[in-house]
Nucleic acid binder design. Structure first.
Lengths: 242, 242
DNA sequence: CACTTCATATAACGCCGCTATAGGTGCTAC
DNA sequence: GTAGCACCTATAGCGGCGTTATATGAAGTG
């Protein structure tokens, strides 16, 4: 057993690589930088990780298990749809917290040697969606829903990472999140798939009012009231059909 | 003026770089490969492009102008929403046709030095969406809508590129496309709100929704929520002129 | 102790991006 | 026509990179 005073070279390499990746702004990190920072010689790196890619794969795997751990430890609200929102937001937040790691994980996808992590993320999301499916809240299979949600989630996160932290607009995330969720699930408490009976005119009118409210805010409602009102309006508007 | 028999070295470099990038499966392309393929010596490359990055920026810029050209030359169907679908599909198709180019364009985004192309793509999409807005079909600003759509579009395309061509399921694209579009725009064909004047349209739409709700209660809202919702709706409907 | 096994180090190879320097090549001025 | 001048291209090489052949130490086992 090692004392904490001096971690093993393998650990030092991993930490140094992770730290350098996080610092060096997207530029590639050289093995020499890493071995120097870990106070270790080149062959040690190759002994433990095989090659540079192996080292950074390990870094990414560690980051990913941190991500998955965080995802798995999120509480279950009991409301599957609310859970979906939570996991979406958690994904985005992880990307913003570890931008360079995230870019390696989800941005630099090489076909063929596809990161198994993306598949794992998909599988995990599918689990959450399966719970929603059990509650009869899905209008597509959990597999399809997971892929669509993950794709949009990654796209949004990449876009947010790409722009300066100062002018990041998280509304992009919320808006896209609701879009995908409402296409994939029904938000109704009861009797999910009515679709046939509901009078379409309600939906049409709700959409119209929603649109009208975008350009002109009524002064009869306070801003907090308006916020909730719009949310409900959107719920009504997005009754899933097709 | 050069005959076509032997393009200028600059052109040869560009073509060689583009070809090598398309062939070499995601692995980096070396300047030596490029100069050799272009039958040119190293300093020529640096004379014309300054830098390896400059060369590949040029390749990407060419690919991007091909993309934008294709986008701009798409016919306008006259139906803004249908146009949105067309441009979405065109984006995905471009990514699948030029996967490696696409990954460099939209996958490897480096913060700071943000590819101006992503911004251009966003701007172009915003134009299309502005047309939809003029037809009163948007429920959010064209800017927000463009960002959300582009983010989802990129996410979907990256995911499709990442998986083997054989088992690609374009339904992922269609499904996500409809999700985002329906969140951003109304799909109703007829006169959502007559928009001709600013404020009255809100009142008109509110009255219409109120009327529709009398005959059919939406299941997206609980009864207590509905009660409050109707109350607010009435407040909006009874706005005294203005 | 001899022996194996693992972990680390020295020193070097070959490829890479890039450049200091210099040599054509074609145009304009006289 | 040739001197001057920009432009374009080539020879040769530097320093940094990923990687490895080889050797040395350290730790457990008979």
């Amino acid at each position: 057993m090692k004392k904490v005073g001096e971690p093993a070279p393998k650990t030092r390499l991993l930490r140094a690589a992770a730290a350098l990746l996080a610092e060096s702004n997207g530029e590639p990190v050289s093995t020499r930088q890493v071995t120097e920072a870990a106070r270790v010689s080149a062959p040690t790196l190759y002994h433990h990780f095989g090659d540079k890619e192996g080292l950074f794969d390990a870094v990414v795997a560690e980051g990913f298990s941190e991500y998955l751990g965080a995802e798995r430890s999120l509480p279950t609200s009991g409301q599957p749809i609310e859970d979906l929102r939570m996991h979406w937001d958690n994904h985005v937040q992880f990307g913003l917290d570890h931008p360079h790691l995230y870019l390696v994980m989800f941005g630099n996808i090489r076909p063929e040697r596809r990161p198994s992590m993306v598949a794992s993320a998909e599988a995990f999301l599918e689990e959450v969606l399966a719970r929603a499916a059990e509650a009869s809240r899905l209008v597509v299979t959990p597999h399809e829903a997971a892929r669509s949600m993950l794709a949009a989630n990654i796209g949004v996160t990449l876009m947010l990472i790409a722009e300066p932290a100062a002018k990041r607009n998280l509304e992009l995330s919320a808006m896209t999140r609701e879009a995908v969720i409402s296409a994939v699930a029904t938000t109704s408490e009861s009797d999910p798939v009515t679709e046939t009976e509901g009078t379409p005119s309600v939906v049409v009118a709700a959409i119209a009012l929603n649109a009208a409210l975008q350009s002109s805010h009524p002064d009869q409602l306070s801003s907090s009231e308006l916020k909730l009102f719009l949310e409900w309006l959107q719920r009504i508007s997005s009754r899933s059909g097709s």
